[in-house]
Write a protein that binds this DNA or RNA. Structure first.
Lengths: 344, 344
DNA sequence: GCTAGCGCTGGCAACGCTGTCAAAGGCGCG
DNA sequence: CGCGCCTTTGACAGCGTTGCCAGCGCTAGC
């Protein structure tokens, strides 16, 4: 019911508009959906009436009638604020450009029920599609279920999972390989590394790429475990710097642990990069803010998110449109924390 | 249509369940909504049938029929990944505990159309309620419109806006006052500050609280402009440290600028905290990762977000429930970047 | 013995929109 | 001049739920 010309509320419906404009609701609907077959004059009248009454269509009703919700979801764990936020920015921006809304569905990577949880979420909320963020995107059971449900999905990860109809695969392995080679070229021979959690395939990729770039196998003592947390980075750095033959370069699998290495080095009076080169991974803001500024590997996260969203929307709009697995190149950002080995 | 016992798809409806269970759809609906008036036996049968068919109710249809969407929205600008992500964590967690989903609606603080944009978003998406994050929560026109639409909203900010039916007001002014007093107690007399963007009321609060704690007025040269960005912090720090009488303490209105101060000091060979004390604001992870670790003010963001969400959901479930404006106390985290002034 | 009241269940309409189909009117073409 | 075709418009039937009210079979109360 329209409540008069002013103070239009949520309760103005398409019927009110149709009545006020003297046309059928179907015609109003056509105008709303920019259907081609509407007379110019009619369209104009309807548009004016809509504006006059302050009407906005109910997405809910539209969803029920059309089978499309104009909602997409992002499935994410929350290990890293920087990554999530950069990705979300790109997704949300693309969504609103296309008239979609974004719903956030958090999950726990370690939870054995993740796939079931995501499925039940999709069934209830009836979103039109999903974007699955790392590391959750490494779980093959999720895209498998989604495909079975017929819901389009896009994964963002460092490895390609055939279960996804569409993926953005960042070449983390290639990037760490390049970083490793760079260190070797600089003259480093005692090169150490702090791993990420081994159950993340991206962590495996980073490790594999880096190790492959080195001339020989890495001594066990140089290969430290880490969990992407600051404290684990501190512990690993302490262990490395306490060795009789400490490394002249340390690659930490994310920026946070790399920052910990720099802090640990500083507290022991080890000069970075004079006595120790340090590199991280993520291209986070943090890397630029610490002293010395951290060499790191940047993923074009916002850009990737935009691409992922565009692909997803294309799949939604046209289910036949074949989408592919896109490789994404990463870039090495060289800063002050890395240099040729100095006085050993 | 049910497609057999296995491979149940999205298309299982309440009708299928009703038929399979031998009851009316109305009864199935009652079971779904945990209505009290259902016989134990009937409930059991229905529940079993639901499980057997793999049925999940359509939130969309429920929304249309009941006038509730079980969707709440968070309205946010994106100035600070750390803040947004901590808040989102609390919101999303509380939502899913209560069976709601979260949709993210980004806005631009500076946009003159923000309020209209939010209104149109609410009208289209028909969310049941909104949580407005800082700094967008400082714009009074937004809650004003929402109240007019009859949509519950909760604001999280550093100042109380009467337009909001419910707010969480963090006492940033009180916290910076305490910080200022602490610096004075430590013996600092030459105290400087780097402001945030003056059009943020929270920045005004932080400034006002800090200045009020000092024994005398702050010299103009000690009061530097900043925009919460790292570079602006660097510039301000450079200006301050170039003075004939450089300050012995600098309070930067956020952690990022404080990190810049520490970096600038280091590059000039100014020892922190020996020659210069530095404090920030935000309690971000960054603060703990830099060297020296940064004294900062922590808002219990995730906790606040949880509280805000609980209040919002209470208002949604029971519109009569009176919600209030809750003051939130912040805590000063003292770390190595702050000490008594040393050799001046 | 009759009615009121209770616990449980079902039928019907509605929520606000779109899909489908068909009708009305105007046009070109043979 | 008549036919078919195209464009514009409308009627009707859903979409999958819930709200409302009625009705069933009982028991309790007068």
């Amino acid at each position: 019911m329209a409540q008069g010309e002013f103070g239009a509320t949520l309760s103005v419906t398409i019927d009110d508009v149709a009545e006020a404009a003297g046309v059928s609701i179907r015609t109003v609907s056509r105008v709303l959906n920019k259907a081609p077959n509407v007379g110019d004059e009619t369209r104009k009248t309807v548009l004016e009436t809509i504006a006059r009454l302050g009407y906005s269509p109910s997405i809910r009703a539209r969803a029920l009638a059309s089978g499309r919700s104009f909602l997409i979801a992002v499935v994410q764990d929350d290990p890293n604020a920087h990554v999530i936020s950069a990705l979300q920015r790109g997704i949300v921006e693309t969504c609103s450009r296309h008239g979609y809304e974004l719903v956030v569905h958090p999950v726990r990577f370690g939870d054995p029920e993740v796939a079931a949880d995501v499925e039940s979420f999709v069934r209830r909320s009836r979103v039109d599609g999903l974007i699955v963020l790392p590391p959750t995107s490494e779980i093959a059971a999720i895209p498998a279920r989604l495909t079975q449900l017929g819901v389009p999905s896009v994964g963002i990860a460092s490895v390609s999972l055939p279960e996804y109809p569409c993926m953005l695969v960042s070449d983390e392995r290639g990037a760490t390989f390049e970083l490793g080679r760079r260190l070797v070229e600089l003259g480093h021979r005692r090169i150490a590394m702090i791993e990420g959690p081994p159950h993340f395939r991206s962590a495996q990729q980073r490790k594999a790429g880096f190790l492959a770039a080195l001339p020989g196998p890495m001594p066990d003592a140089y290969l430290q475990k880490g969990d992407y947390g600051f404290d684990s980075g501190l512990a690993a750095a302490d262990a490395l710097l306490s060795l009789n033959q400490p490394p002249t370069a340390i690659f930490a699998c994310n920026d946070i642990m790399a920052a910990a290495v720099i802090k640990a080095a500083r507290e022991r009076g080890v000069d970075v990069p004079g006595q120790l080169s340090v590199a991280g991974f993520d291209g986070s803001d943090l890397a630029a803010m610490i002293t010395p500024a951290l060499t790191t590997i940047r993923r074009p996260l916002t850009e990737m998110a935009r691409l992922a969203t565009e692909s997803l929307l294309a799949m939604i709009e046209d289910p036949k449109s074949a989408s592919s697995h896109e490789p994404i190149a990463l870039s090495l950002i060289q800063r002050q924390s890395m240099a040729a080995p100095g006085a050993v």
